[in-house]
Design a binder for these strands. Structure first.
Lengths: 230, 230
DNA sequence: ACAAAAGTGTTAGAGCTACACCCATGC
DNA sequence: GCATGGGTGTAGCTCTAACACTTTTGT
């Protein structure tokens, strides 16, 4: 049995973060240009190394801030990638996190002093290592979660309209929905509070703003076995 | 920007596997007694170290075989645990996998020459490190998946009866279901093929055996947005 | 013949889909 | 006054939940 700590090989541990953003029309991903070994500059996810006394999520969050200026973003762990040759220079296990943010909320922070840029999902550049696989998996998980829960709120401003929410879901699933059914579905969750205020400028009539009722927003569950009292 | 590989700290990378098993009545977890540093012997998940040229899942699978004899078990990645002090002796990141098997199918393999034992979920011993957290998360994911998909088939023999399937789901969710609704629900998926053979010995009447229609068993999806054509 | 588990049908209500028209306003 | 996007209602259907009796067979 191998339980001698000394003889075990050690690896580098990297953290990479996929930041999904929505600008009101299309889904985007934030990438940085990262110089590897003084030569190539390739677009990549926000990545860096784990420090000796750092928690994984703390490290991912620190790295995100270092590379983009983004702070206080809730990161969710996606997957650990560890194929032996995924990084040619040194054996590295990468733990990938992802987050959803509203592009407009953070745009100034991001673009000011950092080499980070938003890319549309269907217009991604060539990516470092296996970052393309990571993104594919991230999109899969985003869809999966959005299909189960009304998760999309995170990608919108605090006040948003039903048509904005619908556009978001149409961007996530790359399809269109019937607006009557869509709004009925979301309103029926009881998670939305209608505000007494309309969006101006986008349309002539103006759409009512809504807010998430955060109290109720952590109890929804809809399942294959609806009669399973989980 | 930190992209010098040399100055980065390296960690040990461990793989731990949670093996859920069902014996027809209760859900169990397979644990081994692992000597750490020649002193304490504590029950723990099946764990070991990543080798230099090994893929993560391959390593998890090798370790599982070394410790229990189990082979060809499909392992699914659960989560990476990496709190700095989770292993007091050396900084270790652990990537946790889990699997569902039928206890009876593998019982001889396991108990013959290995120090592995099945434990009921509500009768777990004190566990090594953060293995308790890992198991809690594993149960959560098992329930989540079982609620979305008819995943439970993996935990049953190739031929199984509806009452057995129901017992399994009742064990996973720790509740009871109406048998009329339960069987209707599962039969309506079209995933079950009824065999012309009855289980004998368990009841006087005998229950028909069913088999999973593996062709159809990779397309089910039921979602919060049923009208989202994913 | 009786006990024990298997198997099955109905009904009321909720939720889903598909569909088309009026509303408010800026120009 | 008209073009643009916002907002709403209904009918048919399917799915769900709740409920109780009959069937088979080992003893």
């Amino acid at each position: 049995m191998l339980n001698q700590y000394d003889v075990q090989t050690k690896c580098l541990v990297a953290l990479d973060s996929i930041i999904f953003g929505f600008d009101g029309e299309v889904l985007k991903i934030l990438l940085v240009k990262r110089g590897i070994e003084e030569t190539a500059t390739t677009w990549s996810l926000m990545g860096g190394w784990l420090r000796p006394d750092e928690d994984l999520e703390v490290a991912a969050s620190r790295i995100l801030t270092e590379l983009t200026g983004l702070q206080n973003i809730y990161l969710e762990q996606l997957y650990a990638f560890g194929t032996p040759d995924r990084d040619k220079i040194s054996r590295t296990v990468s733990i990938v996190y992802f987050a959803l943010i509203n592009v407009l909320d953070y745009d100034e922070q991001v673009s000011d002093s950092f080499e980070a840029r938003w890319f549309s999902l269907d217009d991604l550049p060539t990516l470092l290592f296996d970052h393309g696989d990571m993104i594919r998996m991230g999109i899969g998980k985003l869809r999966y979660k959005a299909a189960q829960h009304p998760i999309g709120f995170e990608l919108l401003p605090e006040k948003f309209t039903i048509p904005q929410l619908q556009k978001l879901y149409e961007a996530i699933f790359n399809t269109t929905f019937d607006k009557r059914n869509f709004s009925r579905k979301f309103l029926s969750t009881g998670l939305l509070k209608k505000l007494n205020e309309k969006q101006r400028g986008h349309s002539k009539k103006g759409a009512y703003y809504y807010q998430v009722d955060t109290d109720k927003y952590h109890s929804q569950f809809n399942s294959f076995l609806n009669f399973a009292k989980v």
